[in-house]
């Protein structure tokens, strides 16, 4: 490079050195502020969970102590055993797991098929039908509650896994999320596969679905959270002598008025949220990616 060009391109040494130095304290202050806020938010979220775990491990008499203990010196694990066996949490967890699995798999399958059609196929009223799917997102579940209950009852699905899960097998949110993911796949890929002899079903399973894996994982997590945390629908669509209660209703059953039962109830609550925590830890990356998709370029 000629000397004059070099001189024109490089900023003067003092300017180059001074400019970052001037911004450094401000940037550091901003970082400290952000981390303080984030820490406060994390404490607000985590503290109730921590207290629940701690209280579930205390003796009943320790629960009424003032100030309440913040750490269990002699953890009482027998309350967990009680919740799992006599509290029938094992049964409730199993019911919730089966119902959730059906809903998650069902939502993934229906969303993949519908989203693929909206993204890759040409058919009449495609836009209108997609709009209808989007509109379903805006209708609260409570609006369709009575109709769904009526349908489930008339189909003799009351107090069955079918009744618990089938009303939730399709989701407008899932269709929307996966359609957006499929639209990111270049059309050339589909045409290349078409020339290579791959029909829609094979292209979907071999190319589109593997490429949309992050969105699928996010949908699975959302779907799991929604299904696992359901309360109202399992409450009204189950009953009788051997009710098919899910874990959230089971928790309510555990709640007693006596102080001695509180640690058992809390142990049940911990048992109920452990699967969610595990799931969130495993799929954290996909969840964040799907939530920030479009926001970060």
């Amino acid at each position: 490079m000629p000397a004059d060009t070099a001189r024109a391109v490089a900023p003067p040494a003092d300017v180059a050195a001074a400019s970052p130095r001037m911004h450094r304290p401000r940037r550091r202050l901003r970082t400290i502020g952000s981390y303080t806020l984030l820490t406060a938010a994390a404490v607000v979220v985590i503290f109730p969970i921590y207290i629940t775990v701690v209280n579930s491990l205390l003796r009943p008499d320790q629960l009424v102590q003032q100030p309440p203990p913040l750490f269990p010196r002699t953890p009482q694990w027998h309350d967990y055993t009680a919740a799992w066996t006599t509290g029938q949490m094992s049964k409730y967890v199993a019911t919730s797991a089966i119902m959730t699995a059906i809903i998650v798999v069902g939502q993934l399958v229906t969303s993949i098929l519908a989203a693929y059609a909206f993204a890759f196929l040409r058919f009449p009223f495609k836009r209108t039908l997609f709009l209808v799917c989007l509109v379903t997102l805006m209708i609260p579940f409570e609006v369709t509650f009575i109709t769904n209950l009526d349908t489930v009852t008339s189909l003799h699905w009351f107090n069955t896994y079918a009744g618990l899960s089938i009303p939730f097998l399709a989701t407008g949110f899932g269709i929307f999320l996966l359609r957006q993911a499929f639209l990111q796949i270049p059309r050339d890929l589909q045409e290349a596969a078409q020339l290579d002899g791959y029909g829609h079903l094979r292209f979907m399973t071999r190319v589109a679905v593997p490429l949309a894996r992050p969105s699928l994982a996010a949908l699975a997590v959302f779907s799991f959270l929604g299904a696992w945390n359901q309360y109202l629908w399992p409450l009204v669509s189950t009953g009788g002598t051997t009710p098919l209660y899910t874990v959230q209703i089971g928790l309510k059953e555990l709640l007693g008025t006596e102080v001695s039962q509180i640690p058992v109830s809390l142990a049940g609550a911990v048992i109920a949220f452990v699967p969610l925590v595990i799931l969130l830890i495993i799929f954290q990356k996909q969840l964040v990616r799907s939530l920030t998709a479009g926001a970060v370029k």
Binding site: D188, L189, E191, L211
Partner: peptide
């Protein structure tokens, strides 16, 4: 294809 159309996965 102009974009090569390779399957990224």
């Amino acid at each position: 294809f102009q974009s090569y159309a390779l399957y990224p996965h």
